[in-house]
Nucleic acid binder design. Sequence first.
DNA 1: GGCATAAAAGCAATGTTATAACATTTCTAA
DNA 2: TTAGAAATGTTATAACATTGCTTTTATGCC
Lengths: 176, 176
Amino acid sequence: MPRKATQATTEPPARPRPCADPDCRGRHAPRERVALAVSICEGRGERMTAFRRRILELLWESGRPTGAYELIEAVERGESRRVGPPTVYRALEFLMAQGLVSRIESLNAYVPCAHPERDHDCLFFICRGCRASVELEDPRIGGLLAEDAALLGFVATRRTVEVEGMCARCAEAAPA
Amino acid sequence: MPRKATQATTEPPARPRPCADPDCRGRHAPRERVALAVSICEGRGERMTAFRRRILELLWESGRPTGAYELIEAVERGESRRVGPPTVYRALEFLMAQGLVSRIESLNAYVPCAHPERDHDCLFFICRGCRASVELEDPRIGGLLAEDAALLGFVATRRTVEVEGMCARCAEAAPA
DNA sequence: GGCATAAAAGCAATGTTATAACATTTCTAA
DNA sequence: TTAGAAATGTTATAACATTGCTTTTATGCC
């Protein structure tokens, strides 16, 4: 019998598995990553509601940093109902608090975190050509920032490291 | 005959001098830094107009990252006239293009660049307590980012490195 | 000086991103 | 089942930024 086409809620998720490749750059199957996020929340006693999950799915499906208002439109397209900005911002806030989503400050946009299972400390390369972003982990950067912070007596709580430019493909396509 | 009292234009600037202290963290006298900026523009044949200069002065005088609309208010207070957002944004754009001002992405705010005379590559520590920011240079970070970028075949054009937290003073005042 | 040109600034409207304040619904546990 | 807490809905507005077009100002040339 056909399933209710409201939201992806009950389908048994693809089995989450940790990604062992340190250089995978976030190339993961959305469904699997969302399932992983769900299981992470379960383990923490946090509530991954249908709406929060929907936002996370949309981010994974988008494939590039996505603005809050784009998410609103996407939800509305999918469900033929109105969604106010606070609803989406609250979902993003939750997802960020859980380390499942990161905000790209220089774009006012959001990306799903490729490795929520690791305690992440990410670094983003943002392409001006295709508007995609690549997430990388480089613990050395965090180390230097910690060192500099210590020098200043500064207690760091959040780090933003973003590099803008052109990815290999776009740089080749439009050399200038 | 008295000059038109429009804007600060002709007062002989404090003699600019380069800052040799690599750890000075931007603790400079506003007038001296503005004078340095003026001389840098002269050297490049760029036009440091009265308005652009005023914006730079206000940023130096503010002592912390300052939003575009705060700048608008400050200009209006000083000159009893209306200033539209585009006017201020254009001035900021010019100052950023000249490397005299940086944008703090995580605050949507602007800070004067402490060392425009050096080809800068800055790193900001932003205090949630006093809302001040400290600019630091750490060439090692740029090195690692360049290395990572090369690994990806990514051509970098701009870097944003921001650390949020509590400065030594505020952390002491409000431990928690 | 007078004039042509280009850069900068003024101005009005609007676009984009984010939050405040308060009402309602839904979930959970006793 | 019902009270309380968490989540979401709704309306309005705050905060940040840009577009398009006009006017002013600076600069170079005659």
